[in-house]
Amino acid sequence: MVDDARFEDGAEKPLRLKAQDSEDLVAISAVLQDAVLPVSEMQFQAGEQRFGLLANRFRWEDVDAAAASKRAVERVQAVVVFDSVLKVRSSGLDLKDKEQVISVLSMTFEAGEDGAGTVVLTLAGDGAIALDVECVEVTLADVTRPYIAPSGKVPSHPA
C-alpha cells in the first residue's frame, strides 16, 4: 500500500501566490503548468466578476527535492481565483461536457488600455480560455496536502 505524501515530506508549506501585474502572472503560470482539472471545476460568477477553478497542479517547486531524496513526485489541489473578470470565452473545449479533463500549459496577459486586458489560459490540445479583465488580480492557493502524482512521472512536452 502506498501512503499519501505529507507536507513534512517535502519540507514545503502550501503555496499562496498573488498576481497584480503581468510579471507576477508569470510566476503563477509557472507553478500552474501541467495542472489538470475537469471542466466541472471551473465557474464564472458574473455578478461578482470572479472566475475560479480547482486544479490538480504538479508541484514543480518540489521536483529537485523529490529527486534528491528518491521519493515520488507530487501534485496538490489548488484554487485559482481571477477577480475583476468582465467576460469569459473559450475555444477548443466543450463546456457542456463537465467530465472533460483539461490541462493548463501556460497563462499569459494581453494588455489593453489602462491596466485592462485579457488573461489567456492555453490548454493542451489547442484549447484556450480567455478572461477579459479590468486589471490583473489573480490568487493561487494550495488547499490540500500534496499527494503522489498518479503517473509517478514529471510531465514532459516532446518537441
Rank of each mutant, 00 (worst) to 15 (best):
C135L: 03
D3A: 15
Q100L: 13
G10H: 12
L53N: 03
L105N: 08
K70G: 09
V138P: 10
A72L: 06
I28P: 03
L121P: 08
A78Q: 11
D4C: 03
A67K: 15
D132R: 08
S103W: 05
P150C: 09
A27G: 04
I102F: 05
W60Q: 14
M42K: 00
I129Q: 07
M42T: 08
R89Q: 09
K153P: 02
L53H: 04
V26R: 15
K70N: 12
Q49V: 01
L131F: 01
N56M: 07
V2F: 11
L95I: 12
V36Y: 06
K13T: 10
Q45G: 00
Q43C: 07
D9I: 07
A11F: 07
A141L: 00
S156L: 12
Q77L: 11
D64E: 12
E74D: 10
L17W: 06
A159H: 08
R16G: 05
V101W: 02
E74M: 14
A128Y: 02
R71K: 15
S106C: 05
Q77D: 13
E23D: 15
M107H: 01
V133P: 08
S69N: 15
R89A: 13
D3V: 11
V154L: 10
V39S: 08
A5H: 06
V143D: 00
V104L: 12
E134I: 02
Q33K: 13
V143L: 04
K153R: 15
E137I: 00
E137C: 06
L17P: 04
V136L: 07
V136N: 02
A149M: 04
V63C: 04
G115C: 10
D64Q: 15
S103K: 14
A128Q: 09
E134N: 10
A55H: 00
V63Q: 09
K98C: 00
A46Y: 04
V80T: 11
V2N: 15
L121I: 11
A128S: 11
A130L: 12
G125R: 15
V73Q: 05
A130I: 02
E8R: 13
L140D: 09
L86V: 14
R57I: 04
E48A: 14
G117R: 09
E48I: 01
L32Q: 04
K98Y: 01
A111T: 06
V81Q: 08
S106T: 13
V88N: 08
